[in-house]
Nucleic acid binder design. Sequence first.
DNA 1: TAAACCCTACGTAGTAATACATACATAAAT
DNA 2: ATTTATGTATGTATTACTACGTAGGGTTTA
Lengths: 221, 221
Amino acid sequence: MSNSKQISVIIVDDHSLLREGFASRIEKDDTLELIDEAATGEDGLHKICKHKPDVAVVDIELPGINGFELSKKIKECSPNTEIIILTSYKQEEYFREAMEIGVSGYFLKDETIDILKAIKNIISGEPVISPKVLSFVTNLYSKRNRFRENVPDLQKLTNREREILKLLSVNKSNNEISNELCIDKRTVETHRNNIREKLGLIGGSRNALLVFALENKEILT
Amino acid sequence: MSNSKQISVIIVDDHSLLREGFASRIEKDDTLELIDEAATGEDGLHKICKHKPDVAVVDIELPGINGFELSKKIKECSPNTEIIILTSYKQEEYFREAMEIGVSGYFLKDETIDILKAIKNIISGEPVISPKVLSFVTNLYSKRNRFRENVPDLQKLTNREREILKLLSVNKSNNEISNELCIDKRTVETHRNNIREKLGLIGGSRNALLVFALENKEILT
DNA sequence: TAAACCCTACGTAGTAATACATACATAAAT
DNA sequence: ATTTATGTATGTATTACTACGTAGGGTTTA
């Protein structure tokens, strides 16, 4: 009955109607197999730990332990099970918590989403976030009103200059840099000036170079 | 030639080898059609505005206008074109900017990702983020969480001090702040010192306060 | 071979911020 | 009613960085 090529799935949701719909959809797809289902967190945990399915679809609002607690416990007892949150909560806090726990997918029930395709995507290594939920990410980022006009041209800098810029990005002073690189402190100043000129930071605020270094610290080799 | 059921795609990347590989993959899939390609931002924009493809795959680092600028212009001239960023930059800043612009996908070149499947997913309405990149979302959220726990020191600041810290976070000098708030520049220094003391930044590096302000600019009211 | 670039070093001058103080008026708390 | 917190202002000295230069020795390149 259980084809080894099939993706094994367990759903944990207290709405029987939703479980039925989910089961009927999965039945029509022979690459997926619903091996069990549960209506409570405890029952779900028990069944998932027992069967260790490829995918667990869990609701957040559950009788007993909720979907978050359940997810954490799943990660302990069956770490290879991919967890998909399927919920009607689109609050940012819930999404955030799900992300922190490290679930592989987060979908809203009221969406016209192809949950089966999402499961397959996740199994093939692509975490998927539901379109409506993705807007949280976008909004979150948009709240920061910094907007980069150009990809900074770090290629214009020499190796030494990039090295010094990297030290600047971890907030080292000229003195510290000169000690670390065993060069004169005035030489460090020369490099700084050359860097500032190449990056077009001359005449700006006193700390323009530091700000640049901090903002770009990740992309410095 | 062009089957109306096919998904039309244009790729903009300055690496010809990558374009060739992309083209050869697409050829083998008759649901996708590569209708044109470009090596520069300008050429890409021209071709995309002309053909208005279903999907545009764009690199960030491009000769001339970069991938971000290109994406913004694509959204103007061909708003129905889904944009997929395909890049070797996995820095959070780039991902953030891509999200702000509102692209539908963000993938890393060095990943063993099925880009064709990703295109199809996106066409079917599922924004997809590359697995490695998705960790930014997680990190971002957990970072925010840490902020709230580890920086209650901000509560120790008075309203005026927070106001000044906020101005510091956008890299204003004491002089600029004193003008803006109509107080003496030495008073601003007093506030700075009080802030530094309350945040435990005394004796640290000269720019410790600036670094702090920059790193926490998002959570300043 | 000459030109260009890179790393190094230094001179003088000025500005910005810190370290470490004191001081006064007001408003809130108790 | 006295303490406390807050916002304001000032003094002196020191440090860190910038502005604007010059300059030698090394390697690469045209």
